[in-house]
Amino acid sequence: MQTGLRTGRISLQVQSEPVQSFSASFELKGTPERGELSLISPLGSVLGVLRWSPGEAVLDSGGGKVQRFSSVDELMAQATGAAVPVTALFAWLQGDNASVSGWTADLSRYAEGRITARRVQPAPPADLRVVLDQ
């Protein structure tokens, strides 16, 4: 897996009641096992930095607010509203249509820097969209 920096925009919509939406610019570096994901608002302020390594997952929301989680999936769920599968996300960002239970990825526009994925299980459904910087 690539360990270089990937940047772009990410959005996630969870079809819950009420619908939860999240979108931000991102900077992703590392691997599925050890990495860092910075989420940045449209105005350029850092919304949070997610860091993970074996046995540790941390969300730094700035201002000294740090939350610790038992897994990167739990961390992603807290930060974005749904447990985005980090291992599959790294694969999708490389153009590899990795399968993960409950998710279906569409890489048909990968050459344009666009990735979509849909979670059908567990409920509620969720839609993930990624636009990579070229």
Score class of each variant (00 low, 15 high):
S71M: 10
A82Y: 06
P42L: 05
F26H: 05
E36D: 08
M1L: 13
A111H: 15
S45F: 10
V120N: 13
F69W: 09
W92M: 04
S53T: 11
A111E: 15
W92K: 04
Q134S: 13
G35P: 07
S99W: 13
S41H: 05
D96N: 15
A24I: 04
W52Q: 01
L39R: 01
Q121I: 05
V100A: 07
Q134C: 05
L128P: 02
L107G: 02
V49N: 12
A82E: 11
L5K: 13
D133E: 14
P85K: 02
G55N: 12
A77W: 13
T3W: 03
L39A: 05
V120Q: 14
G64V: 06
E112P: 04
V84Y: 01
W103M: 04
R34F: 08
S71Y: 12
S16K: 03
P32L: 09
G64C: 10
G102E: 11
R68V: 12
V130H: 03
D73M: 11
R6C: 06
G48K: 02
R109D: 12
L75C: 02
L75V: 02
G62M: 05
G95R: 06
S25F: 05
G63F: 12
W103E: 09
Q20S: 10
I40V: 15
L37N: 07
T7L: 07
E56Q: 12
G64R: 10
A91K: 13
T116K: 10
A83F: 05
V66Y: 07
T7Q: 14
S53Y: 06
V14Y: 09
L107I: 04
P125Q: 13
E33T: 14
A83W: 09
G102P: 10
V86P: 04
V14C: 05
L132K: 02
A111Q: 15
R119Y: 02
G81C: 07
T104Y: 09
F26V: 02
V131E: 13
